[in-house]
Simulated scan of single mutants.
Amino acid sequence: MDFRIDPDTWFVFSTLFISGLGLFIAGFIVIPYLLRKKQIERLQFKFVRNNHRYEEVVKNISHRKEIFLENNNRKLKSDLSSSLRKIAKSNNNELDVITFFSDFEKVYPDFTTSLQKINPNITANELKLCALLRLNLSAKEVSKILNITPESVNKARYRLRKKIGLKPKEDLDIFLINI
């Protein structure tokens, strides 16, 4: 039996076999690569979507906290003004004054520390005067609360201006409000 293969047939057969083998190997490399690429794209999309949701939740929580703090601040300010009216009407009960200043510290927590940074030698009475002036009270109202005369309030304001180092054209009330 004489088995002879034609060289042209052999060449076509080997070319087809090699190209089929090449396609088969390329399929094993390319298909998993494309599948991984699609999977990575899906994961990135999910990550971006989850990150966006997380940012929305954080923004929502911070907005709720902000609203809560604003409501709480409004409530404290109303309590502050009611306790101030109560002190002005009463016979200057010392406990009411202490309660008022503790409420003032809740509404304006950094007020005394920033004043003490400006002038570390500021006294407790001057801090009380500054707190009352911060609320835009007149000298007469401050004198009722501190149980002193309106002239004493004016003198204390003058001394406070000198101690803080304000220029004559600068307003003490505006300075205290901006702290």
Score class of each variant (00 low, 15 high):
Val107Met: 02
Gln44Met: 09
Leu95Asn: 12
Phe47Arg: 07
Asn72Ala: 12
Glu66Lys: 10
Val97Ala: 03
Tyr33Asn: 03
Lys38Tyr: 11
Lys46His: 07
Ile61Thr: 09
Ile98Glu: 06
Leu76Arg: 05
Leu43Val: 04
Ser114Cys: 02
Asn93Gln: 09
Leu84Ile: 10
Ser82Pro: 02
Glu55Leu: 15
Lys77Gly: 00
Glu56Ile: 14
Lys89Ala: 15
Val107Gln: 01
Asn50Phe: 06
Asp96Lys: 11
Leu84Asn: 00
Tyr108Val: 02
Phe68Arg: 11
His52Gln: 15
Arg42Asn: 06
Thr113Trp: 07
Asp79Asn: 12
Phe111Ile: 00
Ile98Thr: 09
Phe104Val: 02
Asp103Asn: 05
Phe111Gln: 00
Arg53Lys: 15
Asn60Ser: 15
Phe47Cys: 02
Thr113His: 14
Val57Trp: 03
Asn51Trp: 12
Arg64His: 13
Glu105His: 11
Lys106Asn: 09
Leu34Lys: 03
Val97Phe: 03
His52Gly: 05
His52Thr: 15
Ile87Trp: 01
Ser82Gln: 10
Arg49Ser: 13
Lys75Ser: 09
Ile61Glu: 07
Phe100Lys: 01
Ile98Lys: 11
Gln44Leu: 14
Phe111Arg: 02
Leu69Arg: 09
Lys65Met: 14
Arg74Thr: 05
Phe111Thr: 00
Asp96Glu: 13
Leu84Trp: 01
Leu95Glu: 15
Phe100Tyr: 04
Thr99Pro: 04
Glu41Val: 02
Asn73Gln: 10
Asp79Val: 03
Val48Met: 06
Phe45Val: 06
Ile61Ser: 03
Val97His: 00
Ser83Asn: 09
Lys77Leu: 05
Ser83Ile: 07
Glu94Gly: 03
Arg49Lys: 13
Phe101Thr: 02
Phe104Asn: 01
Leu95Ala: 08
Tyr108Phe: 13
Asn50Asp: 02
Tyr54Ala: 14
Phe45Trp: 12
Glu94Gln: 08
Phe111Glu: 00
Asp96Met: 13
Leu76Val: 05
Glu56Arg: 15
Ser62Asn: 15
Asn51Asp: 14
Leu69Gln: 11
Leu84Tyr: 00
Phe104Glu: 00
Ser78Ala: 11
His52Ser: 14
Glu66Phe: 06
Ala88Tyr: 04
Glu41Ala: 07
Arg49Val: 09
Ser102Phe: 03
Lys75Met: 07
Asn50Gln: 12
Asn50Thr: 11
Ser83Gln: 07
Asp79Met: 11
Asn92Met: 05
Asn71Pro: 02
